[in-house]
Design a protein around this nucleic acid. Structure first.
Length: 479
RNA sequence: GACCCCAUGGUCUAGAGGCCUAGGACAUCACCCUUUCAAGGUGGUAACCCGGGUUCGAAUCCCGGUGGGGUCACCA
């Protein structure tokens, strides 16, 4: 049995889109499961559409999700080059061959002519197909017009059926009469996608073409080419699409669509990969939290869904939170660093702060924000909290608290709890009436970690200082 | 419009003729816990698109309809 070889072949026109990421991921998972090779090929034939730095961005995106390729532009595996533009001689050689064998022909029709044809057919209610005007040109005709602008068209079959054996959907049958003689080489004698992809996939020994569903209608054309060239046809598998919540194609107006944007939102990328692999696939035992490696163990195309999936930001964030609390704290700490805009040089130990704060953060952006007060005293207090906890008697309670804590030697969680209990008894107020004003004074917020854990970490000096500060501000009418 | 794909709660899905009184997860609601929030615990609301067949029996098979999506480039 031949070793499995699959590829992800993005066009370098931007950053890694989550649809592309999912396709890459499924290819990768399949390769790993089958003990095969995963290849990265850059489809950069159309120079005009390229975006500078895009190839590097794609690679970064894939790596950040934990997808590694066995062969690619930066990783030779003996099947290179891995940039389509560098394979031009192969495309041209194959086009030459098709021309020589009369399986393709020169077409001199101008774009204007074609546009006219199209309009005419449309007026007659016919589907827009190439007329075949140049199909009958003799070799003398072609020689005579040698200098003219021309493209190469493939002679599509005019009868019969073509069946795509799709590993996910089963056999899909197409009536060959719906295909016209499509262009395979542009006027500058560079290939069009449907042609280049076949030559490259063949040359690279690709055994399984796993790609988005949008490619399914093009597959018969590619099969024509495989057959015309005498190449073995690979197996195909067309993945369901990922749709926006309104069932339309995912686009910028739906918010984040690229891996980069999710990273900037502070979504943990391990979680993103995990979420993505669940879009259209499920593990046999129903587990939802699993790493790429774990998924690769069980990944089969048979378990891939046929239906388009609508992506759900809520579930993604939930998953990010799951990773947030499950990952080693050091890892979360490393990840959150780039989101922090305040100094953490002085103040409580970073890892401890991360450990305490991560429990209620869904993204790294949130985490960074929730960690802020450990390093910076609040400058203002949440209005809702002021109304609730800084009312009559609050100043006295805050001052009493400051006074008591200033002399509190045992600064452990339990000792602090005992101190609050004692003071609440002395003052004849409920413990909560001490706790909430403290939280607000120390953090500026009404929500956060358990008070005693938090105060323990903030430390005595800073805590007392913030209690006094709050009392003063209230007296001065500043809050 | 033509061709192709698809159809289980709001969302992701399990389900390959009887195991389904349709299971899990997210979201949502209620309650519990409690020092707030989050987490956690318990419970609840909520789905087999419709119509015909096939079969003793259909979410599962077939046909039709409807709906959604995709493709129809000298883009990839």
């Amino acid at each position: 049995m031949r070793v499995v070889r699959v590829r992800y072949a993005p066009s370098p026109t931007g950053t890694l889109h989550i649809g592309g990421a999912r396709t890459a991921l499924f290819n990768y998972l399949f390769a790993r499961h089958e003990g095969g090779h995963f290849i990265l090929r850059v489809e950069d034939t159309d120079q005009s559409r390229q975006i500078e730095g895009s190839e590097a961005a794609m690679m970064r995106g894939l790596k950040s999700l934990g997808i590694v390729w066995d062969e690619g532009p930066d990783q030779d595996g003996g099947y290179g080059p891995y940039r389509q533009s560098e394979r031009l001689h192969r495309h041209q050689a194959m086009a030459d061959r098709l021309l020589a064998e009369h399986k393709a022909y020169r077409c001199f029709c101008t774009p204007e002519q074609l546009e006219q044809d199209r309009a005419q057919r449309q007026a007659q209610g016919l589907p827009p197909r190439y007329s075949g005007r140049c199909r009958g040109l003799t070799e003398d005709d072609v020689r005579a017009r040698a200098g003219e602008r021309s493209v190469v068209r493939f002679k599509a079959p005019m009868e019969g059926d073509t069946v795509v054996h799709d590993l996910i959907r089963g056999d899909v049958r197409f009536d060959n009469r719906i295909f016209d003689d499509f262009v395979i080489m542009k006027p500058d004698y560079t290939p069009v996608y449907n042609f280049a992809v076949v030559v490259d996939d063949h040359d690279m020994g690709i055994t399984h073409v796993i790609r988005g569903e949008e490619h399914l209608p093009n597959t018969p054309k590619q099969i024509f080419i495989y057959e015309a060239l005498g190449f073995e046809v690979p197996a195909f598998a067309h993945l369901p699409m990922i749709l926006a919540p309104d069932r339309s194609k995912l686009s910028k107006r739906h918010g984040a669509t690229s891996v980069e944007e999710y990273r900037d939102q502070g979504i943990l990328l391990g979680a993103l990969a995990n979420y993505l692999l669940l879009l259209g696939w499920s593990s046999p035992d129903g587990r939802e939290i699993l790493t790429i490696d774990e998924a690769a163990q069980e990944f089969t195309l048979e378990r891939v869904q046929h239906t388009a999936a609508i992506y759900d930001q809520k579930k993604l964030e939930w998953m990010s939170h799951e990773y947030m609390i499950a990952l080693p704290v050091e890892q979360v700490a490393d990840a959150v660093r780039s989101f922090i805009s305040y100094s953490t040089e002085t103040g409580p130990e970073f890892l401890a702060v991360v450990g305490l704060s991560r429990e209620r953060a869904f993204t790294l952006v949130q985490l960074a924000e929730q960690m802020r007060f450990f390093y910076e005293a609040p400058e203002s207090y949440e209005a809702k909290g002021v109304a609730k906890h800084f009312g009559p008697g609050a100043v006295e309670r805050l001052e009493a608290l400051a006074e008591r804590l200033a002399h509190q030697d045992d600064w452990s969680h339990d000792a602090l709890l005992a101190a609050y209990d004692q003071l609440s008894e002395e003052l004849g107020v409920k413990r909560a009436e001490l706790i909430h004003p403290t939280r607000l004074a120390v953090t500026g917020r009404t929500v956060g970690p358990g008070l005693f854990e938090l105060v323990e970490l903030v430390g005595r000096e800073a805590s007392v200082e913030r209690l006094r500060q709050a009392a003063e501000r209230i007296r001065a009418g500043l809050v």
